[in-house]
Amino acid sequence: MGTTPNFVAPGFEGVASAFFETIPEGRRAGAALSVWKDGAAVVSLAAGTADGGNSPFRNDTLIPVASVTKGLASLVIGRLVELGRMPSYDTEIGEFWPEFAAHGKGKLSIGDVLAHRAGLSAPREALPKSVYLDSIATADVLAAQEPLWTPGEGHQYHNITHGALTAKLAFLATGRSLGSLFAEEIAGPLSADAWIGLPEEYDTRVATMVPDPLPPAPAMSVPNSYWLERAVNLGSGVGFPNLVESADGRRAEMPGVNGFATAEAVAKIYSAAVVPTEGVRLLSDAAVDDVRKPRSKGEPVFGGQPPYQAFGAGVMVPSHWDPYLTEYSFGHDGALGQVAFADPYFKVGFAYFTNQAGDWERGKSVTTALWRDLN
């Protein structure tokens, strides 16, 4: 397929300048930026390289978007709720998913589960590959598990397990996989290049991830570090590189961690969540309010250093971690520095994706420039 040429609409020059400042010296890596305003693209930029040296980073380059996938999966759930295909966020999870009620978890609301409050941020038993690549199997293990803290009393980021829980909720509601629902309900109507479970024919478009050139920060000893580590490796040594670089990892539908998309696709999706975009509106204003309603904030159960994240029904909402554009914004960041969100006040969809591992300050700097251009 052809690639969209770089363009910047008048009035968004500050955004473009901020974007190009994020491209590494020597252009060993690259990035793409897409901004939609009032249902139309106003910025489409790509620069640097997609493979650490030779191939240019293009607007149709696919990026492993990591936890940005959680936000996309949450839009699927939000749509199912709005259409009445699954119960409201306030429904007790035990009514909808009886097996989840084991060990006192049944009184949690569906919204609590989506907001990282279920006490299931990590599995107590190591998950073999055959289980962790199967989101429904993982969810079944978690449903039977004793929670790691009193359910509902505090939150802790469910790095990978969140995707299994959303997958099971979608399956109970429809009998279908979340990846297929995402393709049909979200990406398909917008012709958006985004997948949860990447078809093999798109492998050649995936950028090579470039390690962070800076030395890693010294490891810090924090309480409950065992559970923090286990939330990432599931007790089986699984890591983000395994999930996005291996064939079986790419094919698996893991809605918390292994989405693949272009910046344009995700920005367009978030645009359509808050304003008609190419004839599509994914959520009503009322449904947007339900999705972004703050449900978890402040210090998580297992501690860590601020700034802390805040969550709605599976999406990240503004916090000291990332203020996004306004108090009404919602979306999700992803490992390696990916930033994506919608803003219903400005009617904006935004995505900054990079293959240069590192922090989120790059995407945040572009968001800050967008705020200035809009004001």
Rank of each mutant, 00 (worst) to 15 (best):
G331T: 06
Y345M: 07
S365G: 06
G334L: 13
S365M: 06
T367R: 15
R362L: 01
H332G: 04
A335K: 04
D359M: 05
P344N: 11
E361V: 08
A340E: 01
T326G: 05
K347A: 07
Y328H: 14
V339I: 14
D359P: 01
G358I: 12
P318M: 12
D333I: 14
F341Y: 15
W321F: 15
H332T: 01
L336H: 13
D359Y: 03
D322M: 13
D322K: 04
W321G: 00
A342P: 06
A335F: 13
E361S: 15
G358A: 11
E361W: 09
V348H: 09
V348M: 05
A342F: 12
M316H: 08
K364Q: 15
A335L: 12
Y324Q: 04
Q356T: 02
D343Q: 05
G363E: 03
K347G: 00
K364D: 01
V339P: 02
V366P: 10
R362F: 03
N355H: 11
Y328Q: 12
K347T: 02
T354W: 12
E327C: 00
F353M: 14
A369Q: 13
V317Q: 08
T367D: 00
L325W: 07
E361G: 02
W360P: 00
G363A: 06
V317F: 07
K347M: 01
M316Y: 08
T368N: 14
Q356N: 12
T354V: 07
G337R: 11
D333L: 15
H320C: 01
N355Q: 12
V339L: 13
V317D: 02
P323V: 07
T367S: 15
A340R: 04
A369T: 11
G331C: 06
Q356V: 05
F341T: 03
H332V: 03
S329C: 01
Y328E: 14
S365Q: 08
W321H: 07
M316E: 15
E361P: 00
A342G: 07
D333W: 11
Q338K: 11
R362Y: 03
D343I: 06
F341G: 02
S319L: 13
D359N: 14
T326Q: 01
A351L: 07
F353E: 01
V348Y: 02
P323S: 06
G337T: 08
D333N: 15
D343P: 05
N355I: 10
V366D: 01
V366Q: 02
G363Q: 13
G334N: 10
G358Y: 14
G363I: 11
V348W: 04
